[in-house]
Amino acid sequence: MLEWNLWRALLDGTWITVQVTVLAALLGTILSILSGLAGLSSVRAVRWANQVYVDFFRGTSAIVQLFWIFFALPFFGISLSPLLAGVVTLGLNMGSYGSEVVRGAIRAVPRGQTEAAIALNVTSFDRMRYIIFPQAAVTMLPPYGNLLIELLKASALVSLITLSDLTFQVQILRVNGSASTTQLFTIALVLYFLLAMGITGLVRAAEGYLGRGLEIGRGARRS
């Protein structure tokens, strides 16, 4: 098996991968919610601007976006560190996909819920915050979990802009000839897989937590 210092390098890389993923997930989640709500706005200009954002980031490729932000943006005098460039790109990218998830889930909450809230004279903000969003969140979680896994996978792209994440470390060790290539890549894939399983576990737990009380007859009965 590998020597300790090789493991050390791989685990350092894994830690960077975790950081990039978590930070981008935070940004991506916020953007998903904002963009999802913007997509439901009654103001046409807001919906339109939002659609431009969504189509732009879904229409181009994450790696191209990353390269643009890291290599082209400095020509405009804006130089981002590799970490920041990675987090910003991946977050923006995730937000453009999460937007649809949020919007779809909110629209799937039965109309009667909004009506009951109006009958209680609840403000539109509180309506979203306490009534609609908590219910939509349960629907959102499974596709949101998928987005997180896609984000984790996409985080490997930051190795291409010199951030020393797990993929980067593997490449370094491979070039150094410190270990067998097959072994290095296998370990890296297993580490990514473990992280992905961790995400899946967290999302499942969140589903259980948010869905408590909803389990019986969910979707089948109207309440």
């Binding site: 009667g112 209680l120 509180d126 948010l210 009380g213 309440s223």
Partner: peptide, 26 residues
């Protein structure tokens, strides 16, 4: 206030929270 044919209770809240929600937030 209104009572609906299909109840429109808030499924994510307990019976008590359904009733106390309005008084508290509104």
């Amino acid at each position: 206030s209104m009572v609906f044919q299909h109840f429109n209770l808030f499924p994510h809240m307990t019976a008590l929270d359904n009733v106390s929600f309005g008084p508290r937030k509104v």
